[in-house]
Computed example of a mutant assay.
Amino acid sequence: MSQLKRVLNPPSGRRSFKVPTSKQTLPLEYLGWGLRRFGEEPVPLSLNFGWVYAVVLEGKPTLLVKDERVACNPGTAATIGLECPIGWEDIEGAQSKILVWIWDKPPTIERLRPALNGWQRWNLVEQKLDSLDRIHRECRQELAASDDYTADALEGCQRRLDVAWLRSGVGTATTQQFETRYESGLNWMRHNLKSRHPVAELSVYLGVSEATLQRIFKRHTGEGPLVAFQSLKAQEAERLLAEGHSVKSVAWHLGYQHPNDFTRFYKKTFNRAPSGRK
Score class of each variant (00 low, 15 high):
Lys5Phe: 02
Arg6Ile: 00
Ser12Pro: 00
Arg14Pro: 01
Phe17Ile: 02
Thr25Trp: 03
Leu26Trp: 00
Glu29His: 04
Gly32Met: 08
Val43Ala: 05
Phe49Cys: 02
Val56Glu: 08
Glu58Val: 09
Gly59Arg: 06
Pro61Ser: 08
Pro61Leu: 06
Leu63Gly: 07
Leu64His: 09
Lys66Thr: 13
Glu68Cys: 04
Val70Asp: 10
Ala71Leu: 15
Gly87Asn: 12
Trp88Met: 15
Glu92Gln: 09
Gly93Tyr: 06
Gln95Pro: 00
Ile98Gln: 14
Trp101Arg: 10
Ile109Asn: 10
Pro114Gln: 08
Gln120Ile: 14
Lys128Asp: 15
Asp130Ala: 15
Arg140Val: 04
Gln141Arg: 04
Glu142Ile: 11
Leu143Ile: 14
Leu143Asp: 07
Ala144Cys: 04
Asp148Pro: 06
Tyr149Asp: 07
Asp152Cys: 03
Gln158Arg: 12
Val163His: 13
Ala173Pro: 00
Thr174Asn: 15
Glu179Tyr: 11
Ser184Val: 08
Arg196Pro: 00
Pro198Ser: 06
Ala200Gly: 02
Arg215Met: 07
Glu223Leu: 10
Leu232Pro: 02
Glu236Thr: 13
Ala242Glu: 14
Ser246Ala: 03
Lys248Val: 05
Ala251Asp: 01
Trp252Asp: 08
His258Asp: 11
Arg264Gly: 04
Lys268Asp: 01
Gly276Tyr: 06
Lys278Leu: 05
